[in-house]
Design a protein around this nucleic acid. Structure first.
Lengths: 110, 110
DNA sequence: TTTTTATATTGCAATATTACGATAAACTTT
DNA sequence: AAAGTTTATCGTAATATTGCAATATAAAAA
């Protein structure tokens, strides 16, 4: 065994887990933060920014793309990677709901 | 190889990654949501709520505790697990900042 | 004290992740 | 066309995760 039993959980739970898992590595958090920091999205220099080899960075980018956190367009010789705002809005919305839900039951807990 | 190079990233990036990774499994998302739903935190029935064997649930709870997302107190025969609001506020704050940061540069991207 | 009940730990197998060298693919430039 | 540049994929090794049966631990109940 060792395979996640996704079928037993709700779509929302699986979706949040996929997005969270994609951000579950500091390199991928760093990539998202870097993409947020640059103005344009013609950003073919992500490899130089990270302390990892080029294949490793490429793999992390692939995982972020698979999870839906970034979009990638071929732009001549360089690849244009951009943040997919939708995914981050989903996470933002989720944790906003969680936070307000927790505020309502302040001090009900140990 | 195969070990995450945490030392090359900022404390903040590592912290977000740890929290996100802990939520990177639907069972753990489900646990957090369940703990949010109950009023008191004398909740010794998490095992029955999840479609997983008892040792598996115990392991997921351990990971959530290690990441700082939940707190656990021994409460007689049952363990009292509670959400650690601090951790979820960190996530909420992080994604709020990310979201507002993205709004400022609307349509600058592909 | 013995039994019951509830959670934790151990041990193991299957699978996934992480990282990078080597290589391939694709577009630019000369 | 040939050389250079950039990103993707392949192959592989080390490590981590996932899941559960078996077992251990600990407190409550009998």
């Amino acid at each position: 065994m060792g395979a996640t039993k996704t079928e037993h959980f709700t779509n929302r739970q699986n979706q949040i887990a996929i997005l969270a898992k994609a951000l579950g590595h500091p390199a991928r958090v760093a990539i998202i933060e870097y993409l947020m920091g640059v103005d344009t999205c013609i950003c073919g220099d992500i490899v130089n920014v990270l302390p990892l080899a080029q294949p490793t960075v490429s793999q992390h980018l692939k995982e972020l793309k698979n999870a839906g956190l970034i979009k990638g367009n071929v732009e001549g010789n360089a690849i244009c990677y951009c943040i997919d705002e939708t995914a981050l809005e989903i996470l933002q919305g989720y944790f906003a709901i969680v936070s307000t839900s927790l505020e309502k039951k302040k001090n009900n807990c140990c």
